[in-house]
Amino acid sequence: MQEVSFRLDGKIAFVTGGGRGIGKALALGLAQAGADVIVVANTKDEVTVAAREIAEMTGRNTLALCCDVSDPAKIETAVNQAMERFGHIDILINNAGIGFVKSVMDVTAEEWSHVMDTNLRSALLLSQRIGRQMIERGWGRIVNVASVSAGLTFGMLNAYGPSKAGLVNLTQMLGNDLGRHGVTVNSISPWFIKTAMTEEALKTEEFREFSTTRTPIGRIGNPEDLVAPVLFFCSESSGYVTGQNLFVDGGATTFGM
């Protein structure tokens, strides 16, 4: 009988949006579980500090890569640099994401495209590029960070919700295509999490009250709340789970009248 374990010793993980917030927490959690981590973000200073701190805290090997994942050429360069350093990638965390508050009737084509390119197209391109070498090695784990907004309508989030809905569907499609090769693909959908992206909104009493009263657990989530679910999806013990979307939302999506 196989021992149940969430350890990732000897694995190499590639985490986008890893310079802060959810991505940094996930990168740290993967390193604490034994993985060497490639931390990818669009801000050089931020990603450099994050990778150094994770290495100091865990003793794992880390690599900081500055990359705008909305740019296919930069994605290719980043993956090549990671492969040159580590030789292969076992785990891909597609976490990079952006959003802004604006009516869907007012969002421009350029704004829409930028959100889609960052949140959705990057996940496709990285999954294709890294997934091919996972197929060659017969093992891999891809975890996409989606959102409850993939299935719930929040006014003024315009392109963000559709991009995350697409990410959940992409998870299912990739899970179907890659499963026979030993590669699983799953996603998590958080509710509101305390990050730089939600910091301004959480400063308002009205928004804090809305977020907490609609959450059965009764509090706003922290980035660390997402680590254990991701570790499960990345581990050997989740080998029979693919194409799934897990709500990590304090029960918010079950909230009744």
Rank of each mutant, 00 (worst) to 15 (best):
N95D: 07
N95F: 00
N95S: 05
N95V: 01
A96W: 00
A96C: 06
G97R: 04
G97W: 01
I98C: 02
I98D: 08
I98K: 10
I98E: 03
G99R: 03
G99N: 08
G99M: 10
F100P: 00
V101L: 10
V101A: 07
K102M: 07
K102G: 02
K102N: 05
K102L: 04
K102D: 03
S103L: 04
S103W: 01
S103D: 09
S103T: 01
V104C: 08
V104D: 06
V104H: 00
M105Y: 11
M105I: 06
D106S: 15
D106M: 11
D106W: 07
V107Q: 06
V107D: 06
V107I: 15
V107W: 00
V107G: 02
V107L: 08
T108K: 07
T108D: 09
T108E: 13
T108G: 14
T108F: 02
A109E: 15
A109M: 12
A109K: 11
A109P: 08
E110Q: 15
E110V: 12
E110K: 13
E111R: 13
E111Y: 14
W112D: 08
W112R: 09
S113M: 09
S113N: 15
H114P: 06
V115T: 15
V115Q: 09
V115S: 10
M116E: 00
M116C: 07
M116Q: 14
M116P: 04
D117L: 13
D117H: 13
D117A: 15
T118S: 02
T118M: 00
T118C: 05
T118N: 06
T118K: 04
N119M: 07
N119H: 02
N119Y: 00
N119A: 00
N119L: 01
N119F: 01
R121C: 04
R121S: 12
R121I: 06
R121T: 15
R121P: 04
R121M: 14
S122L: 02
S122Q: 10
A123T: 03
L124Q: 03
L124V: 07
L124S: 01
L124H: 09
L125W: 14
L125D: 14
L125E: 12
L125V: 12
L125N: 10
L126T: 02
L126Y: 07
S127L: 04
S127N: 06
